[in-house]
Computed example of a mutant assay.
Amino acid sequence: MPTRCLPTLLLSLSFLASAQDAPRPPAPAPALGEAECQVWARELGFAQSVADHDAEAFAEHVHPQAAFGAKGPRPTRGREAVVAEWAGIISGEPVEVQWYPTMVTVSGDSGVAYSSGPALYRRRDASGETQLALGAFVSVWVRDVDGAWRVLYDDGIRPVPADAAQAEAFTAGRRIACPRA
Rank of each mutant, 00 (worst) to 15 (best):
I157K: 15
G147Y: 03
R124C: 07
D146K: 12
G88E: 08
R123C: 02
P179W: 06
R4H: 06
W149L: 01
A70R: 12
G45H: 08
R42P: 00
A41I: 01
E80H: 00
P101E: 08
A119W: 02
C37R: 11
T171R: 03
G72V: 12
P94D: 13
A57K: 07
E93T: 09
L11S: 08
E85M: 10
V104Q: 09
F68V: 06
A47K: 11
F46E: 11
A67P: 05
Q38R: 03
G156N: 14
K71A: 13
V112Y: 10
P118C: 10
F170Y: 12
A66H: 01
G135K: 10
A66C: 01
Y153S: 05
S107F: 10
S18V: 09
A133K: 09
D144I: 08
R158I: 13
R175A: 15
D21Q: 13
S110Y: 07
G108E: 14
D144V: 10
A67D: 04
Q98P: 02
D154M: 12
S127G: 05
F15Q: 12
G173R: 06
P64H: 01
A87P: 00
P73Y: 02
G111V: 05
V145K: 06
R42V: 03
P64A: 05
R143M: 02
T8N: 06
P23S: 02
W40S: 03
D146C: 14
R124F: 09
K71S: 12
Y114P: 06
L152C: 10
A136R: 15
I176N: 12
T171P: 02
G156I: 10
F46P: 12
V82W: 03
L11N: 07
R174W: 09
W40D: 07
A47P: 13
W86S: 14
G135Q: 07
P73K: 08
R158L: 15
V145L: 05
A177L: 14
M103A: 12
E96T: 14
E56N: 15
L134C: 05
Q166I: 03
V104G: 08
E129R: 14
V39C: 08
R24V: 08
G147A: 07
R123Y: 03
V62Y: 01
A19G: 14
A133F: 06
Q131G: 00
A164E: 13
D52A: 15
V62W: 01
K71P: 01
G45P: 09
W149S: 01
T171E: 11
P30K: 04
R175S: 15
Q20A: 08
Y153K: 05
C5Q: 13
P30G: 01
V140G: 04
A181T: 13
M1P: 06
L32N: 00
R4I: 10
A87R: 15
Q65G: 04
Y121Q: 14
P161R: 07
Q98F: 13
D144C: 07
W99Q: 06
C178Q: 08
